[in-house]
């Protein structure tokens, strides 16, 4: 998918461009929203809000600054995190377990089970336990570096270094494919 072409089509209000964009990226954003929120209905709302925001705000997209994906990714991630924090979210036990998982982080690193996908598991198994848990919290569950640092009582520098090393490791695998 070529950024410049699809952006031009979106800016020209071409609805088939939105449809193409959806076909390519909806699964990525839905997967992320599910991991952050863990309830299907809310995750679907997030995906819907994300694509509507992309459609409505495409004029603000600055291709000298962002790759299209990165711009959309931040919208999707913020939508999911906002939703998680907002009062709209429905009460259920699954949500509670995510919210409190950071507190039990040291006691058990069961957060791994939140990531269902086999592919991810294989990727994550390349990392040591500690790095894996930190990457999960930051990348997959939408906590900020400093939140993770606070909750796990790890210096933020260490968290940043661990996330970076994990991403470099995953990159070396992903780029081969």
């Amino acid at each position: 998918m070529i950024d410049a072409q699809i952006v031009t089509r979106l800016k020209n209000r071409d609805k088939t461009a939105l449809s193409d964009l959806y076909d390519h990226y909806a699964a990525a954003f839905y997967g992320q929203a599910l991991r952050i929120l863990d309830t299907e209905a809310t995750a679907q709302e997030v995906v819907q809000d994300t694509f509507l925001k992309i459609w409505n705000n495409i004029s603000q997209y600055d291709d000298s600054k962002w790759k299209l994906f990165t711009w959309m990714y931040r919208i999707a991630r913020n939508e999911a995190i906002d939703k998680k924090r907002s009062k709209e979210i429905k009460h259920n036990d699954k949500t509670t377990s995510i919210d409190t998982s950071v507190y039990t982080y040291e006691a058990n690193s069961s957060t791994v089970s939140n990531v269902e996908d086999i592919g991810v598991k294989q990727l994550l198994n390349l990392l040591d336990e500690d790095t894996k848990s930190i990457l999960e919290l930051v990348y997959f569950q939408g906590y900020t570096h400093s939140e993770v640092a606070d909750y796990t009582k790890t210096p933020i520098g260490t968290v940043k270094t661990k996330v970076r090393r994990a991403i470099l490791k995953l990159r070396s695998v992903l780029i081969k494919e």
Binding site: D23, Y30, G31, K67, I167
Partner: peptide, 28 residues
């Protein structure tokens, strides 16, 4: 890095239910 994030996100995607796309296309 952006490329890595993109690949990772695509790789770890989960297919949403079909109605979702219809809803989005209808609302635009």
């Amino acid at each position: 890095l952006a490329d890595t994030f993109e690949k990772l996100s695509l790789q770890t995607g989960v297919e949403p239910p079909g109605e979702l796309k219809d809803m989005i296309m209808e609302s635009v």
